[in-house]
Amino acid sequence: MLELSGLSLGFGGISVIRDLSLRVAPGERLVILGPNGAGKTSLLRLIAGELRPQQGNIWLHRRDITRDTVPSRARAGIGRGFQQTSLFTGMTLRENLSLACDGDAAAMEQLAARAGLTDLDRPVAKVDYGTARRLDLALALAGNPRLLLLDEPASGIGPGGAVDLHALIAALPRDLTLVVIEHDLDLAFAIADRIAIMDRGRIVFDGAPEAARPALKATYDV
């Protein structure tokens, strides 16, 4: 499904990703954990095409997409949720969804129902953060991606909203491959088939969730 081989990325002499290789199988749910500055978001941005690696390759369905642009990767089936909600704030919820669904009204209604979004004629600029989070996830799911990248999908929302969002993510179809960055360990262990722990641009642990706890302890020094 997704294969990263020998990825390296640096900014001004500082290495952010160091010779990183990773494979994600179709339908697998990989959660990436790690301290701040470990390179998790940069890794997700490399997969989405927002950053170009200085070395290494990215393969999606055995096709090298390393040089592909963000839109062409999106059309190839990569959906993207952002760490901070990334919405069309000058539009209503309906207009956001309509744009994402390319004007397909039935698909839009389905997507809204799936994300638990109601009262769609509200301007995005005036909705609460929990609703904005759900809309961000809905936009990421538009177009039925085969690989969904989520960067701390529940960050910034209260415990109740986070529980709703966790349930929403847990209910995603099993054939959808997930790569999720998450600080919330409850969510991470609830949804992960596999956990990778990053530190200083490298993967220091990659394995089953139950085996991850000792490595987490070492990485976070807790």
Binding site: A48, E50, T69, V70, P71, S72, A74, R75, G79, R80, F82, S86, L87, F88, T89, G90, M91, E95, S98, L99, A100, D102, G103, L139, A140, A142, G143
Partner: peptide
């Protein structure tokens, strides 16, 4: 539909790109 995309690209180019809009 073009106009909607045109304004979307102005509003939030990163999200537009993530939706497959160049």
């Amino acid at each position: 539909r073009f106009g909607q995309r045109f304004e979307a690209v102005h509003d939030n180019p990163d999200r537009a790109a993530a939706l497959g809009i160049a």
